[in-house]
């Protein structure tokens, strides 16, 4: 059964996403797998992290005995003070996002469509959801990368022809990195670019609702 085959660890997904971050770029990481990405930046490159809580150049999390309630990221985690940190208010935090100053955001998702629509703020069965900074990031960041599991907990595909959940942004996702594959939404449809070791394009298609266009240079997951 394809569904029971071994998939990549969350850390490996984060490691693959880290390769996409530009050296010297300004990057906003969402909650979940995206948060792990900062652990895998190559030693020789520099990435400046932005958080909607109003801080630029934030980095590692604080040790438990050094937690400061006045130093948090947008996920409510405590940050270590770092030289060169800058604080600002929420208007400025989002001017950076919508104004095109944030190069890349990495977000989690409930669903992504073949054409790059993103749904990550509401599960209809709960009836109420949190938008937070997601819609602004989807609309404003220069590049939106989704990092997530390929299927949900019931093993239903999260990569779909059209989103059935309320969307966060239309056509905003430029790359999807999952525990099975790397995929690129395009106006023509969803291009499968890389597969996890041991997985075939046909097996990935079996767990994907959207029809896949196989890249001519399809490769194994490149780390």
């Amino acid at each position: 059964m394809v569904a029971e085959k071994e998939r990549l660890e969350r850390e490996v997904v984060a490691m693959r996403v880290a390769k996409e971050l530009p050296d010297g770029g300004y990057v906003n990481l969402g909650i979940g797998i995206p948060t792990l990405v900062s652990n895998f930046i190559a030693d020789e490159s520099v990435v400046f992290y932005h958080s909607e809580s109003g801080v630029l150049n934030c980095g590692p999390l604080a040790e438990e005995d050094e937690q400061d309630i006045d130093l948090i990221n947008a996920g409510g985690q405590f940050l270590q003070p770092v030289d060169g940190m800058a604080f600002f208010n929420t208007v400025d935090a989002f001017a950076m996002i919508r104004g095109g100053h944030v190069d890349v955001t990495v977000l989690g998702a409930h669903q992504v469509s073949a054409r790059g629509d993103l749904a990550n703020w509401m599960l209809p069965e709960r009836g109420v959801g949190n938008i937070g900074g997601a819609m602004d990031l989807a609309a404003g960041a220069r590049q939106v990368i989704v990092a997530m599991e390929h299927t949900d907990r019931q093993n239903r595909p999260k990569i779909v022809e059209d989103c059935t959940y309320p969307i966060t942004g239309k056509g905003c996702v430029s790359l999807i990195v999952t525990d099975l594959a790397v995929l690129q939404p395009t106006p023509e449809g969803l291009v499968l670019k890389e597969v996890a070791p041991g997985w075939s394009a046909a097996e990935v298609q079996e767990l994907t609702d959207a029809r896949l266009i196989i890249a001519p240079d399809l490769k194994e997951y490149e780390l």
Binding site: V128, G129, I131, A134, M135, D136
Partner: peptide, 19 residues
């Protein structure tokens, strides 16, 4: 309280609320 129908909600994106 929202599920009990006691409060209303206007949901706004964060950057839109700030602006």
């Amino acid at each position: 309280a929202y599920r009990r129908g006691e409060v209303e909600l206007e949901l706004v994106p964060q950057g839109t609320l700030a602006e």
